[in-house]
Computed example of a mutant assay.
Amino acid sequence: MRILMSLALCLLLTGCEVERKSQQNQSRTVQEKTQKVTPEKDIHQAEWRTVKQGKLNLSQVTYLSEGLKIDALVCAPQNLKAGTPLLMLEHGGFDTETDPRKCNEYAQMGYVIAQSAYRGQGRSEGKVEACLGEVNDSLALKQVVQDRLKTQGVVHVGVSLGGCIALKAAAQQKDVKGVAILVTPMDFAQQIRILRATRPDALSRWFEIFGGTPEEAPEQYEKRRPIAAAPQVNAPILNLIAAQDPLIPYKQQCDLLSVRKKAGKMVEVVHLARNGAPNPPLQQRYVCEGEGKPAFKLPEFKPQDFKNQDVFVTYYDLHHTSTAHMWKTVQDFLRTVAPLP
């Protein structure tokens, strides 16, 4: 169990060393290529260094957010059609760089992808704030990309801490077509309580970022909670949950379910096996109060189904990580709520 706790902590805080190094190596490859290109400046004074890779344009972008120079990666088809939706990919962790592999993958589908490294991460200026200033970094990048590439509508996809950024950014916009969050915490003070019991050695970084313990600085934890922004998200939410997440008590997902229902949203609740297989035996401890009996297979994603409805998917026997089935579900959701022109 301690090994699983350590793995989960790694995923939440750093994205895991092996994966992070792999992403960094890919990011450096893009950076090395783009550094040879003379940067172009746009109306926002953002610098674009773009190289062609197959049928895609890969751009290393340096833009301004609240006076800070922030590093970003943008991927787009070369034959970009007018009105193509923008996908904002919000990464997790406190020390994670952009992910060229995911950027490339979704651009191959025909979308424009934008990923901010956020303040204090990658080559960006500033300090990590944990779902505070990073929300403004995401919104600023969205504006930069939207104005230059003439995208239309936006979908936010966030993993772990990035899910918090996705929800809070989506709550401040009117052109959001959908939000997909994976293994996303709703209450950071609860994470501290868990880490006190399992990884007290990791707390110093958290306290540095948050300005103290939950008892010393409760307002700092409160203003970062994404659940407070959830009622303001008018777009459909796809919430992908790991049932046995050692860092996110399952009650947090029940709380989000309750908040969305009180906001007038219908919520389709689905329980699947770890690998996404349908019809697992019901595990009653993962049924939220007032939820009713969950479905045991994904609904057929249709545009009319997402006008006023969320989908919450619980994966049994899964810890703090994402899976291939989760990302396949995100792609199906993306195609449904934000079809290509």
Rank of each mutant, 00 (worst) to 15 (best):
T184E: 11
K265E: 02
A230F: 04
R274C: 04
P200C: 04
E216V: 08
I241M: 12
V259M: 07
A242D: 13
M266F: 03
P218H: 12
N279C: 03
I248L: 05
Y221W: 02
P249C: 10
D201E: 15
V267I: 14
F301P: 08
G264T: 05
V287P: 13
L298P: 07
F188L: 14
Q252C: 11
W206C: 02
L182T: 11
C254T: 08
L247I: 10
G264H: 05
D201Q: 14
P218C: 11
P278Q: 09
R285T: 13
G178T: 04
Q232C: 04
R225H: 06
Q253L: 07
K297A: 12
M186R: 04
L203Y: 01
K265I: 02
A229Q: 09
V233M: 06
W206R: 01
V233D: 13
K307C: 00
G211A: 10
K261R: 15
G292S: 12
F207W: 03
N239C: 09
Q253T: 14
H271K: 06
N234W: 00
A243L: 11
F207G: 09
H271V: 12
E289I: 10
Q252Y: 03
D201H: 05
D305F: 04
L247T: 06
E219C: 05
I237W: 01
I237E: 06
A228R: 15
Q309F: 00
P249S: 11
K265Y: 01
E216H: 07
P185S: 03
A230E: 12
N234S: 14
L182P: 04
P231S: 12
G264W: 02
L272G: 03
